[in-house]
Design a protein around this nucleic acid. Sequence first.
DNA 1: CGGGTGGTTGACAACTCTCAAGCGGCGTGG
DNA 2: CCACGCCGCTTGAGAGTTGTCAACCACCCG
Lengths: 279, 279
Amino acid sequence: MTSQLQPEQLVAPYRPSRFMASLSAMSEPIPLDLAHLRKSCAHCSLQQLCLPAGIDAEELARLDQIVKLRRPTQRNERLFRISDPLVSLYIARDGAFKTVSISEEGEEQIVGFHLPGELIGLDALGHGVHRCEAIALTTASVCEVPLVQLTAVAAQLPRLQQQLLRVIGQGMGRDQDHLNILVKRQANERIALFLHGLGERYQLIGQSGLQFKLPMSREDIANYLGLALETVSRGFTRLQEDGVISVHGRLIEISDPGQLNRLAHVREAAPLPLRGSAG
Amino acid sequence: MTSQLQPEQLVAPYRPSRFMASLSAMSEPIPLDLAHLRKSCAHCSLQQLCLPAGIDAEELARLDQIVKLRRPTQRNERLFRISDPLVSLYIARDGAFKTVSISEEGEEQIVGFHLPGELIGLDALGHGVHRCEAIALTTASVCEVPLVQLTAVAAQLPRLQQQLLRVIGQGMGRDQDHLNILVKRQANERIALFLHGLGERYQLIGQSGLQFKLPMSREDIANYLGLALETVSRGFTRLQEDGVISVHGRLIEISDPGQLNRLAHVREAAPLPLRGSAG
DNA sequence: CGGGTGGTTGACAACTCTCAAGCGGCGTGG
DNA sequence: CCACGCCGCTTGAGAGTTGTCAACCACCCG
């Protein structure tokens, strides 16, 4: 439908030459029986967060048929590049991804981080062409859902269509949250909000929301938050000095969730077990 | 060289099907008045930018049946409020709207401005409840599209479904552009980008992109751009001093589009001497 | 003519960026 | 097994931009 655009690589001044070698080594299709067995959405731990949420067994089977499980991706591998035509949506299963847009001057801007269960690829809905790159932050695995088939099935399954819109809407909601982080908030607030939000998302996928390992570098965080990486580093240090969190490299432990929430200006109905939060 | 990648180009690589004005022959009750006659998407000047883009006459008729034309809204009137259930999507016909989210502390954050032809209400897709208020910046009129009926019709009309996703995607694209404005750009760049983008959008709806009246206050712009209103004011003044634009209250004339473009896209290498405006 | 709203301008303080140096872990290679 | 070097991260000092506070101006309306 869309006229074929040349996926010319708008290569940014990004120089992971050492990784390129390892990436180019893996392009051969491998028939993985194991992967096929595990592919079913019915057995996926993310079922309740992912597209399948809210649809019944029969519908699930229909969806299963079009979901491909891609082989695990290496760190820094890309699901798609800028100006690639929109073919599939992806859903992270393991690991984490970032989506990055690149400005005319070649500067990267991280648009979002994607934890398991979160949809990737919506950026191309508008024009049928990706405006972002999706890059694996860790070794990861994803489900691939060809869009044509997805919309076709969705047209026949109202609940799936509804769910699709819902997942899209949630993605937009996250974008809006991102926006609210960036506007009119100072560095420390942004960092607190970031950690808070990340903790919430980890909790949603069944991991600890109080103790987790950041899949992204300080530089990525800084980019995402619109700060200098030094400011992020200082922010972490400050939060640690104040006893709010405990930092060991990328390991984060939230020692005082209540205080973190307060710093983030988040008020909520205490979804986390808040133990004796001082003052 | 990479000039095909304009940040926000609504003109999609889809073939725009020509619409025959044979719709008047369709069996329609014709119960009401002039407004009802004008309601038809087939006669709307925004046809190519709005939901109807890319669908044929017959499909258009189906869409027409579910589109309600709401009475003109007054300035500051709201289409919906926060936590209102999602009932309809809206499309601005005349005038302009802003969507505003409100933080726990009661601070407003303007999420987007909506010119004619642009969809309003997508914020509620995620949870079925609006997370924004849509407020008219001027007297305005909107088309209202009940979501239930829209999705029902879309399920039967693949092209409408596709178009719906496309419009949603374009909305997300605008959000992303907004985000890119806010991150890592200084005040003057944000302002230049803002004016540039606004001009582009005005041009798209058939108005002058070089001379237009801002529908929103300085305060709104500042809020949207994450700046203090004084900074916006100073930025306008500065742009005027530099001969890039001409400001008369809310009337904006872009005197030097090339320079504005440069300021909006290029962080440095601007031939403008950056010095204090004392003088 | 006066009040009100919205916009402009000025001065100062605070925050964050930039530049720069130093630290620490981890993998490679001897 | 240890040394080295690289990379990611931390820390420090100075400069610049922007927010804040405050006053003033311009326009609209009655």
